[in-house]
């Protein structure tokens, strides 16, 4: 019998994959470069992918968290881990302390439609299970854009904010599906708009994808993504 649940991935396969990733991670951990699907930004700004996915993010090294139900996740993401948690736009390399541990923000570009948090954490030698990832990006719009929707997928639960307003929460043990969670209609301001996410993973693979959809539910592309350099 096959089970799609990631906890049921045969142990041999997990060990084999882990061993391969570990080799890559060790070499990358030494120079702080991210995992194979993630690269350090090499340009001031980035455009969304052909399908509208946001490719550039600031990721905070994982914080311990467990539980994926609505109430547990909401409690976990509303807990204050660091100052200005819901307003700060960090810089690449910024460091902060959470529960006595020093964590670093990393600017990354993904080479895929999704951001592989397993690659990210594993390459840094950080835990990938029972963890919470904070992700932030800045979307720059040439003009005000009304009636758009944030559309995300995540493994596993996640909560999302646009310009400080919570717009999506999806819960439970789930895999990343494109446009799994879609916000109500919202307005993107002319200029910078801050998109923030908290992704909570139980075990196994973890990743997310995000894009905006226009009023016709087509991928929104008329914007750039830029992260302030330190």
């Amino acid at each position: 019998m096959n089970s799609p649940h990631k906890d049921h991935i045969p142990a041999v396969a997990v060990l084999a994959a882990s061993a391969l990733l570990a080799v890559a991670a060790i070499s990358r951990a030494a120079d702080q470069s991210p995992a194979p699907t993630l690269t350090s930004p090499a340009s001031p700004q980035k455009t969304p992918s052909a399908d509208g996915f946001i490719p550039r993010w600031l990721l905070l090294e994982p914080i311990g968290a467990s539980g994926l139900t609505d109430s547990v996740v909401q409690t976990a993401v509303k807990k204050e881990y660091f100052p200005n948690q819901f307003t700060v736009v960090p810089h690449d390399g910024d460091q902060l302390t959470v529960g006595g541990a020093q964590l670093t923000w990393h600017a990354v570009d993904t080479t895929h439609y999704n951001v592989n948090l397993y690659h990210f954490a594993h390459a840094l030698g950080k835990p990938t299970s029972d963890v919470l990832f904070w992700a932030v990006t800045v979307v720059n719009c040439p003009q005000e854009m009304r009636g758009v929707r944030l559309a995300i997928g995540s493994n596993a639960a996640s909560v999302w904010w646009v310009n400080g307003k919570e717009v999506i929460g999806i819960y439970g043990d789930r895999q990343t599906v494109i446009d799994d969670g879609v916000s109500k209609r919202l307005t993107l301001n002319k200029g910078p708009n801050i998109v923030r996410a908290a992704i909570v993973n139980g075990g196994g693979a973890t990743d997310f994808c995000a894009r905006f959809l226009d009023a016709a539910d087509k991928p929104l592309k008329g914007f750039t993504v830029s992260l302030a350099a330190k």
Binding site: A151, I170, D179, D180, G181, V182, S183, K184, R185, D217
Partner: peptide, 8 residues
């Protein structure tokens, strides 16, 4: 339906 998990 909008996305897999929401309606509008």
């Amino acid at each position: 339906a909008t996305g897999s998990s929401f309606a509008t």
